[in-house]
């Protein structure tokens, strides 16, 4: 990698581990995640409930509550700056400024007793040291940017609909022009037509501000619309990652295959759904071998013994699956 390229890296995580030490045992939420994200790129972090997607995002923001959460990591850099060693008061400067987060539920992410204008202005006052008046002015600009008339800055969150609230949350997140945006299921709580509007808006703003983004979602349709790269998580590990084309058209991991096969095919309504059998393993008691092996149709004895490591298939495509030790092995997924 040349220096030029290295400069372009916005997010660099090596061996991120997060566990929650609870009374009922140690919940291993994230178990050794490596992520690299370049400038202007959007990564889709995909997986089901409990895969560790949100915990990964919280760890990037250093927002994992301790106790019970314990974060271990070899490296965590945002824009070349080491986040791990920063003291709390310096983190305040990073959050909202270098990296900000869009939360899943716009209904609870906003403070009900402040006007939306004040909530957008707040981060501008803190990070950009704008006067109250200037911050208000900029808050109005931000609202217009996300498609809300600036006169509505003096209204309270309850006066907005769900889609509108999510726009306000996006305005807050983008107010200080962060290098990295973490969007945690930003459209899950919205109706399809509103979801389409919000996804379109996010695509536009990303272009305009050169922001890098991690989009956490369980919806592969949204990933296809927004992302350049995809990382599929299962039980706290990345099992497959690559470009959108790698993961969607050259699917290799049996879990990714299972996810696609569980989705109804809009082209062929008679096709029977092929769900993944069984359930996600208990995160307090993960299997010794591959976490997906108990649900995997291709699992062999070798899968039960050791945790597979991510291996490179091509320059962009990596998977963690023991079955590929056999050079003959392949899965057959119908491409939608």
């Amino acid at each position: 990698m040349t220096n030029q390229e290295a400069n372009e890296i916005i997010l660099n995580i090596r061996n991120l581990k997060v566990r929650y030490e609870t009374q009922d045992g140690i919940v291993k939420a994230v178990n050794g995640v490596d992520l690299t994200l370049r400038k202007k790129r959007t990564l889709g972090l995909v997986g089901e409930t409990g895969a560790g997607k949100t915990t990964t995002a919280l760890a990037i923001m250093r927002l994992v509550p301790n106790p019970p959460g314990v974060v271990e990591c070899d490296k965590l850099e945002i824009g070349g700056q080491d986040i791990l060693s920063l003291p709390e008061h310096k983190l305040e400067h990073v959050r909202g400024n270098d990296v900000s987060m869009i939360f899943q539920d716009p209904m609870t992410a906003l403070n009900p007793v402040f006007t939306v204008g004040d909530q957008i202005a707040e981060s501008l006052e803190i990070h950009e040291h704008l006067s109250v008046k200037d911050a208000k002015e900029r808050a109005g600009d931000m609202l217009e940017l996300v498609g809300i008339p600036r006169e509505r800055a003096n209204e309270y969150p309850h006066q907005f609909s769900g889609g509108m609230k999510q726009r306000v949350v996006i305005a807050i997140a983008l107010a200080c022009n962060p290098q990295l945006l973490l969007a945690d299921e930003p459209t899950t709580a919205l109706d399809v037509t509103i979801q389409a509007q919000v996804l379109e808006l996010m695509n536009e703003l990303k272009e305009k501000y050169d922001t890098s983004m991690i989009m956490i979602t369980h919806d592969l349709g949204c990933v296809a619309e927004v992302c350049d790269e995809v990382a599929v998580m299962y039980a706290g590990r990345i099992v497959e990652e690559g470009t959108l084309e790698d993961v969607f058209n050259r699917t290799m991991h049996p879990y990714t295959e299972g996810l696609f096969n569980s989705l109804p095919n809009i082209k062929d309504r008679k096709a029977k759904l092929k769900p993944i059998k069984g359930l996600m393993p208990d995160p307090t008691n993960l299997p010794v071998g591959c976490s997906f092996a108990p649900r995997c149709n291709y699992a062999t004895d070798a899968c039960l013994i050791a945790q597979p490591q991510l291996r490179s298939i091509s320059q962009t495509h990596r998977i963690a699956c023991t079955a590929y030790d056999n050079p003959e092995f392949h899965i057959e997924r119908r491409i939608l």
Partner: peptide, 12 residues
């Protein structure tokens, strides 16, 4: 409009 708004998990 509804039909066109469904995100489809396919690149083609």
């Amino acid at each position: 409009a509804l039909l066109s708004a469904i995100p489809i998990p396919s690149l083609s």
